[in-house]
Write a protein that binds this DNA or RNA. Structure first.
Length: 729
DNA sequence: AGCACGCCGACT
DNA sequence: GTCGGCGTGCTC
């Protein structure tokens, strides 16, 4: 009887397609195959195999491809994610597969050279330098040799043509050197050692049949900034590697720094294999293969690393688990931290979530015993957390048109006089968040989105922070024509830099924000320079709150702690608390103790009060209570239907029609589209219809039914579903 | 995701 | 009269 294979194809298709297996080709679920689809050939994965009498009308599978088959847990993950996120199964598969993209691109043949016996036919000064550098006869890369000799590559090439140097093909640099779990390391503090013991003891790597055991619960490893969480989970990684299993460390892309890779190298002797959006081409494929063969023992990666085909996954660490960067907001909408927990369950391996400021839902999971909770309550090395004090802006007003209050200015002054570093934190890029005309009151607004345009004085432009739309800052008001009468309202980091330059002349001041001139690479260099102490006053947005460690920083001034508290986002309080706790925690991580001053108009606000008292417990308890009362996550559930189209009118019309079709049942509330501001995202207009449900409502089923009732979704209009992080286990 | 088919405006 | 723009639908 003919064998029919169900093949899942990595396109936006929800069901596998059926093909016949040609005689002599044994197919099993997970096999990577090539199949015809319409006029072309495409890669797919066998999702099921049946023997039937029929199937003669089906097209045959072209053949099996030489890739390791997708494991059972990985296929289950695809099914699970598709079901949970309501994405087509094929789209979920695409995240796992992303096969030979442009495998040939980025392929740089590595060629080493060494001296032959032949003298150069025409010696030149540049050639002599190269010969001197290569005199020891060792193998060197072409560009390394050129650099060492201080000449350009063409000189080396010329010597190769001349026969003075010979080329030797070298093995490409290994993608995944073996970390040594027993590499000599700095001793742990007693608190760290205790946390390691508590963390690792229940992990059942040597008891592979310990299924469903309590020991496989995810663990929340919570410790204040500077408590040394990283060293603690490194020990879990070491134990995992010793047990012969692979470990995955997930981090927000921004935190994946050279500083971190070096810290890993200090513990394990080599840098870990790193997986992020920047790694491409051949190297990407080699690393994927090394992971699939179980050779790459430790991978550190951004969220997409979660879909790598590990052969023997033994541990997943999610660093900074509260980070919003773990949430993917286009294509398949998912939260990598939660999918890590799911993958851990499917792979039967432990998952460690670490944070100094855990997300509420993670706290709740820990409090209810779904997750284990390991605490690291003190800073490492006897260092103290910074003292935090408020500056009540109603009492200590800055001068007119200024934003730094006198007590903060004085604190910065004395910090600088002691030769220490100060950070002024303001979570607002640009010069001023609003521009208006003094004559007619016109406010400059984005023509695509419902947001004000932000003035960027350095670029002489008004910019939308939603969609990136920018226009030249006009000389005369575009509404009433009055010349030179526009006024900047409120501060951004650029404006603070201007003020700081006046207050602290002769000091080295740097502004760090995601739109740093010169791009991400220059920004990275600048961050390292700050860490090395090559700057006195740092003015930064939230980007300085994470990632880099600044050992000379002893004072953090928070300029407008109240930003974000009024945003209407149900997570505003939580987000603000996390951000402020992280940024104030930057102070005093080096030799000298630190302190933080927080400018606020509402010192009694629960978030600010909790920050000042250091009583995170109380904040979480109150916030959890408030959410329970409001039926918000993690007690109810929150999701959004995201409607998008390339034309504004189309998106709006479709969204309205969908909103009318909502018919929410008991326990479900649909908000919007009035509450859902329109935004232009990557060339498409989109808005969100927020859905709030009570506990125990089957959100997925409701959303499916809603979409089915609504207007037919046609090509240009797309509906995506964004199910928020939940305590779903 | 591609690719074809079909319906509308603007060119030799 | 045809060329070609994109919106729409289909691929086992």
């Amino acid at each position: 009887m003919p064998v029919v294979a169900e093949i899942l194809i990595p396109l936006a298709l929800d069901t596998p397609y059926s093909y016949v297996a040609p005689a002599g080709l044994d197919l099993a679920p997970g096999d990577v195959v090539q199949v015809p689809l319409g006029p072309r050939e495409i890669v797919g994965v066998v999702w099921g195999v049946t023997e039937t009498a029929g199937g003669s009308n089906l097209r045959p599978v072209t053949g099996r491809l030489p890739f390791p088959p997708l494991s059972d847990p990985l296929r289950s993950l695809v099914d699970w994610i598709a079901r949970y996120t309501l994405a087509p199964k094929g789209s979920a598969l695409a995240m796992v597969l992303r096969l030979p993209d442009e495998a040939a691109a980025g392929e740089t043949a590595r060629v080493a050279v060494r001296l032959t016996d032949k003298p150069p036919s025409r010696p030149t000064p540049a050639r002599t330098k190269v010969l001197a550098a290569a005199a020891d006869g060792a193998l060197r890369g072409k560009s390394a040799l050129a650099k060492e000799a201080g000449v350009s590559l063409s000189v080396v090439d010329g010597l190769i043509d001349d026969g003075v140097l010979e080329t030797v093909a070298v093995e490409p640099e290994p993608v995944a050197p073996r970390p040594d779990p027993d590499f000599p390391r700095a001793p742990l503090s007693p608190a760290q050692a205790a946390a390691v013991a508590e963390l690792v003891a229940p992990f059942p790597w040597d008891r592979p049949q310990a299924q469903d055991s309590d020991d496989l619960r995810p663990v929340l490893l919570e410790g204040v900034t500077g408590s040394g969480k990283t060293e603690v989970y490194f020990e879990a990684v070491a134990a995992c590697v010793r047990a012969g299993r692979q470990a995955l460390i997930l981090m927000p892309e921004i935190a994946l720094t050279a500083q971190f890779l070096d810290r890993f190298a200090a513990r394990f002797g080599v840098r870990p294999a790193a997986w992020h959006s920047g790694i491409g081409g051949k190297r990407r494929e080699r690393l994927r293969a090394a992971v699939a063969e179980g050779e790459a023992l430790v991978v550190v990666g951004a969220r997409s690393a979660l879909f790598l085909p590990f052969a023997r996954l033994g541990l997943i660490v999610v660093d900074e688990e509260h980070e919003t960067a773990y949430k993917q907001e286009d294509g398949v909408h998912y939260h990598a931290r939660d999918m890590a927990v799911v993958r851990g369950r499917l792979e039967n391996c432990p998952v460690v979530l670490t944070s100094a400021t855990p997300a509420i839902e993670t706290r709740v999971n820990a409090a209810r015993g779904r997750y284990r909770h390991v605490l690291l309550p003190e800073r490492f090395g006897g260092r103290r957390l910074p003292d935090i004090a408020a500056i009540d802006m109603r009492l200590d007003q800055p001068e007119r048109g200024r934003f730094l209050s006198p007590p903060l200015v004085n604190a910065v002054k004395s910090t600088l006089e002691r030769g220490e570093q100060a950070l002024l934190f303001l979570n607002r890029r640009g010069y001023a968040p609003l521009t208006l005309c003094r004559a007619c009151g016109h406010r400059y607004q984005c023509k695509n989105c419902s947001t004000w345009l932000v003035e960027h004085r350095f670029r002489r432009a008004l910019v939308c922070h939603q969609c990136g739309y920018a226009e030249r800052r006009p000389e005369a008001c575009t509404e009433c024509g009055t010349f030179d009468n526009l006024t900047a309202c409120g501060p951004g980091v650029e404006r603070i830099a201007e003020e700081a330059a006046e207050m602290f002349p002769d000091r080295r001041i740097v502004v760090l924000s995601s739109d740093f001139p010169g791009g991400a690479e220059r920004l990275r260099q600048e961050l390292e320079a700050v860490a090395a102490g090559e700057c006195d006053v740092v003015i930064g947005t939230q980007l300085v709150a994470k990632g880099h460690n600044f050992p000379f920083l002893t004072l953090v001034g928070v300029l407008d702690a109240d930003i974000g508290l009024t945003s209407g986002d149900p997570r505003a309080a939580e987000r603000t608390f996390q951000l402020l706790q992280q940024v104030t925690g930057r102070a005093g991580r080096g030799e000298k103790p630190g302190r933080a001053l927080v400018q606020t108009y509402q010192p009694d606000h629960p978030v600010i009060a909790a920050l000042l008292s250091g009583d995170a417990e109380r904040f979480y308890a109150e916030e959890i209570q408030a959410r329970e009362a409001a039926g918000l996550p993690p007690f109810g559930r929150l999701a959004a239907l995201i409607v998008s189209a390339s034309e504004r009118e189309v998106a709006e019309a479709h969204g309205q029609a969908l909103a009318r079709a909502a018919e929410p049942p008991e326990g479900v509330m649909v908000l919007g589209p009035a509450e859902a501001p329109l935004a232009l995202v990557r060339g498409r207009y989109r808005f969100r219809l927020l859905v709030k449900t009570e506990r125990n409502v089957d959100l997925q089923a409701y959303l499916r039914a809603w979409i089915a009732r609504g207007p037919k979704v046609r090509g240009n209009v797309r509906v995506a579903i964004d199910v928020d992080p939940q305590s779903f286990l």
